[in-house]
Design a protein around this nucleic acid. Structure first.
Lengths: 343, 343
DNA sequence: TTGTAGGCGTTATCAG
DNA sequence: CTGATAACGCCTACAA
């Protein structure tokens, strides 16, 4: 009664109808202090009758805690990001937090704008910025709230970070190929300037040089992490006078594109050319032939980042920042030769 | 100066340092009313010096507009959701909105709790609830803010909705198979109780009956939209005394699992068994053989839902709710026979 | 063009 | 256990 039907009921409405003070209603809903059983019941009844529920924004203005995490991503395309978000959401919800995500942030200014816009809406932020140039500039972000870097580190910064051991993973896979007798190994790299891609290429280089194999620049084809770019790269490789005997793609999507191009060209895998990928997305084991790849705990990446952020939130003052590096696992299937041994 | 270094600067700090009133600072940042050039410049200088940026939460408390959209999803797994989110994020950002996403809501109570928790944090909500049971109960959600239903409709409710024409898409694909001489057509359905899955099955039934083909219950294998469930379903089908000559999977992930199982069993596709999927995820054209499927404008689904929500937000009072149904397109590739004609 | 003051919905402090 | 009341950070008439 006497509640504006169009608007939403506020704590005042509930207090008035239940004949108590707003303070008491607040106590009931935040569960902080004890309220008499009888009073409490009455308040809850009135609240449901009025369809009242606390206003999150107002609550956080008063407590200065939003119970929300910001997630800044370069893109939202493909299974990789979907998995990362899933991991973050899982861990966040477990702690009663929401996440507000924002994609397509590659430029420095965009990231800064997004972070600014999140001021007062989040308690902390997870930032993924694989673009090299942007990284240098993220370094001096306003430290309005705790930040955890995902898949990117910044020298000298005090930010927490969670990354994948791309270098070791790639090196392991290339070593495996070399161990199976391959020496003409090509790579389809990630987008230029992409940190993960660059590290994976470094791993490739490292494995080659430790085996005394000289690099061949024409066997390093730039890709863009998409199936189509893998497809194109493979076609380029097939056009070479000296073909490689193995192709290592910097991610699974490109590897699948490679498989597709080879099939179309009538090149048998792995007999004529071996193929390997990186990430181990769920489809990898179901393509033809099943794709050898480097397993990355993608959702785990998001979960760990969230965990770190949460602890930074709690410890608040004097939180000692840390850098976690997630290990990868070699998944040897048939695309790179039969009967491989797990690493 | 005289600004607490640990805390974040507020509008008051800026006003004090710039020797103006908070109102003027506010005007500069909201750009509503004109402020003298000179004054404006000074304020901006002070603001950057103090690293000030408006507090979103406080701002929305006084304007009662959060510039944020809530997105409730049943799950966050796989390329489908990733694409939907991408579409929503794209459209939302275009209008200067953020999105706060929340996954794993299948039960009615979870959805309600999530919506309650979003009170005061969002201006409107996009809800995807493919679970049949939940739908009946969503009907009486608190109408705290505008809602757009994604891929689910509720009889008699006044909610806007954006859905895919699953029925027609599936029927078209099955008709195509029939047109190519198949009559023993199996289906791997979606999870029981999933609306999309059910409608696709209805389309399958419809195509069969209009062609005078009797259904065979043992050719309707329940799946779960995952590669693995498609794999298992195909194995079950292969074990039958009378095998189907075509398998229609209710989504691409399962179709890929089916292909994988058939290959492993040495069954050639499409010669011995034709295979078709639904969704047309980007990998579909790159698997072996390239997968015939039903193209769904997934990101478009998210974009349209956002557009509808935005207009509901603007029109506010007396917004006439509408139901959009997105058409699908048949993508005939080689997994269901050669030289098909596009629909 | 600029300043003053009230209010947005909650929580927290301090009395009773 | 409960009730006033001052924040929280910002916006917006209303005045000047």
């Amino acid at each position: 009664m006497s509640v504006n039907p169009g608007e939403m009921a506020t704590i005042k409405d509930v207090a008035r109808v239940a004949s108590v003070s707003v303070a008491t209603v607040s106590r009931v809903f935040s569960g902080s202090v004890a309220v008499r059983e009888e009073t409490q019941r009455r308040i809850r009844e009135v609240a449901t009758a009025l369809r009242y529920s606390p206003h999150g924004g107002a609550r956080s203005l008063s407590t200065s805690r939003t119970h929300t995490l910001g997630v800044l991503l370069p893109d939202l395309y493909g299974e990789f990001f979907s998995e990362v978000i899933r991991g973050i959401d899982l861990a966040a919800r477990r702690s009663g937090y929401h996440i507000i995500v924002s994609g397509s942030h590659n430029e420095r200014c965009e990231i800064e704008a997004a972070m600014r816009a999140m001021r007062g809406r989040v308690d902390g932020v997870i930032v993924m910025s694989p673009n090299i140039d942007a990284q240098a500039l993220i370094a001096n972000l306003p430290d309005s709230h705790p930040v955890v870097l995902l898949n990117c580190t910044i020298r000298g910064s005090a930010f927490d970070s969670v990354t994948i051991d791309n270098m070791r993973g790639a090196r392991g896979m290339v070593r495996h190929l070399i161990g199976h007798g391959h020496s003409r190994i090509a790579i389809v790299t990630g987008a230029a300037g992409n940190r993960d891609g660059n590290e994976r290429r470094r791993g490739y280089h490292s494995a080659l040089s430790e085996a005394g194999i000289r690099r061949n620049p024409s066997w390093e084809i730039p890709g863009a992490f998409t199936e189509d770019s893998g497809f194109d790269a493979a076609r380029a490789l097939l056009g070479l006078s000296v073909r490689p005997t193995a192709i290592f793609a910097a991610n699974d999507s490109m590897a699948i594109g490679v498989l597709s191009a080879l099939r179309e060209a009538g090149v048998s895998v792995p007999d004529e050319i071996a193929v390997a990928g990186f990430d181990d997305i769920s489809i990898a084991r179901h393509v033809s032939p099943p794709l050898s790849t480097v397993n990355v705990p993608i959702a785990g990446l998001g979960e760990l980042a969230t965990t770190r952020l949460m602890s930074a939130l709690l410890e608040k003052e004097r939180h000692v920042s840390r850098r976690d590096v997630l290990r990868t696992t070699l998944m040897i299937r048939s695309s790179c030769g039969r009967a491989g041994h797990e690493h």
